[in-house]
Design a protein around this nucleic acid. Sequence first.
DNA 1: CTGAAAGCGCTTACAG
DNA 2: CTGAAAGCGCTTACAG
Lengths: 322, 322
Amino acid sequence: MEATIKDVAKYAGVGVGTVSRVINNEKAVGAKTRAKVLEAMKALNYSRNNMAFRLRKNETRIIALLVPIINHPFFAKLAYYVEDEASRFGYSVLLVSSQQKVDKETEIITRIKHREVDGAVFVTHYMHESDDLRGCPIVSIDRTFGGDIPYVTSDNYDATKNAIGYMVEHGAKSIGFIGSKPLVASEVLERERAYLDAMEEYDMPPRIVNEVIQHGEETIVVQDFIKKHKDVDGVFVSGYTLSQVLYEAATSLGKRIPDDLQIVSYDGIFSQWGSSNITSVEQPVEEMARQVVRLLIKKIRNEETPARTVINTKFVLGTTTK
Amino acid sequence: MEATIKDVAKYAGVGVGTVSRVINNEKAVGAKTRAKVLEAMKALNYSRNNMAFRLRKNETRIIALLVPIINHPFFAKLAYYVEDEASRFGYSVLLVSSQQKVDKETEIITRIKHREVDGAVFVTHYMHESDDLRGCPIVSIDRTFGGDIPYVTSDNYDATKNAIGYMVEHGAKSIGFIGSKPLVASEVLERERAYLDAMEEYDMPPRIVNEVIQHGEETIVVQDFIKKHKDVDGVFVSGYTLSQVLYEAATSLGKRIPDDLQIVSYDGIFSQWGSSNITSVEQPVEEMARQVVRLLIKKIRNEETPARTVINTKFVLGTTTK
DNA sequence: CTGAAAGCGCTTACAG
DNA sequence: CTGAAAGCGCTTACAG
């Protein structure tokens, strides 16, 4: 049906090699021959079959983006910039939402081995380290996989300390920490560590909930926390969703924010409409995305890559701190 | 480097055809032979090169999803379900944000012709109809492309009328319409038509703004509208963003909602905080996504598809109506 | 049940 | 500058 390079060659009365050369714009083709070929291509409405091209080149020019769920502001934003950066390098992005299923996460590795994609950006919360990962062109966000997988992360420790310092300067006497414990080794753990260190420095007793919080139980957990620790007048929340929950729960329990309770959240970027913005440690999603793509492409090309890339956050004042 | 089917054949002492047969789980292979081959595959850590496989089969098993911008709740949700549905049929999803650039939109057509993807889901706001589209496996959302491109849409006309009826029943005496005019033929235009028809039926004078609203000018346009039409006590807004803007603008101009002004929005699904939810006509994104994927796969397989698929919306009460 | 061969649509040394 | 040929890694009639 579709015209192939052979058809074009025949039509133009030249060899297929020659056709290939003009398709790829190689200089070493005579002007007359080139013209004939171009005319044939037009006449036959030829367009190159890139499946064959890719096979020959042994590269798919596709990278996979693995996120827990695309339908979440952070990951959607990440996806946006990943795609933008990738396309600058001539790569396309295959989107995979793991939907919190481990097998969807590990599936990507298979797809790399099967040469369906050249590499992958990993945002995984479930998968374990695995030998299968070795040698795979993968770059991760926030997580270290032990092996030779580079990752980019934000300055979790410093940013957390800084945020807590801010609340202290603005009158907080007892500061709590609310987070959902990651299931796997992750830089996110640094937030807890920073909190505990800060409590020691300020000589405050830690009030912390950092267990694995099931989806749907956020409100219960947070309410319990508030009721249990009546002295708390400042909370550092590790994560966007929980900070929303805390805000709601505290308000409904009669706390005035920020007068009775200050809140700082890691990732608060998504308040769209000016209403009440949570003071937050903002991860520069765009920069993280671009970095991660550039690292991945280096990996694919077998170039050197730093094992760990840290991107600085910004502290953004909202209405939940004094 | 990587083991090929040839290596496996040699290792197992059989022909490549036989290896291919066991890879593809064909029955017509002797038990002993099969065992030998499987052993060889394991020993060599073989995994099939799907670039070659796809070329042979002449299908990529990839569909492209083209959205104006992935970093938007509606499209992110769409992407989520598109990916989910596609994967049920063994297809992967290539993500493309057009970023409001026409050439990124038309680029997809090239990619189909170049056999990089088997087909595409189109959510386009800019591209023109084009002969290049003919015969391409494409399914569109909300837009008709004239030719043989099927599309899915929601019941724009009925839902709009219904929403206006609701406001009238609840005391609205003068109803306005705010929307940004689509640049291209789109079912979205039905909302305006429904509004105008309704105004005629209720014998109300139309108060309407339906021009092309530039990004960034929403607030100005909306404020002008409010100031100009002081009698308006109900507004139907065609689109999520504008309804937020209207809410903010009206509030800041001293209107009480819903007492002084009722608002109904097409697409209001994204109010996260429970605080003030806009009454809205909710598009069942999940169903639209699944339908669009199923239609596309039929198209790819050259099966019959209906030209137009309409999905019913739900009217969801929020706090912006009486 | 199994192997040898042709072919999917390209690219790329190799000669000339 | 150009053509004939080999090859990328598979699948699939075709014989046997």
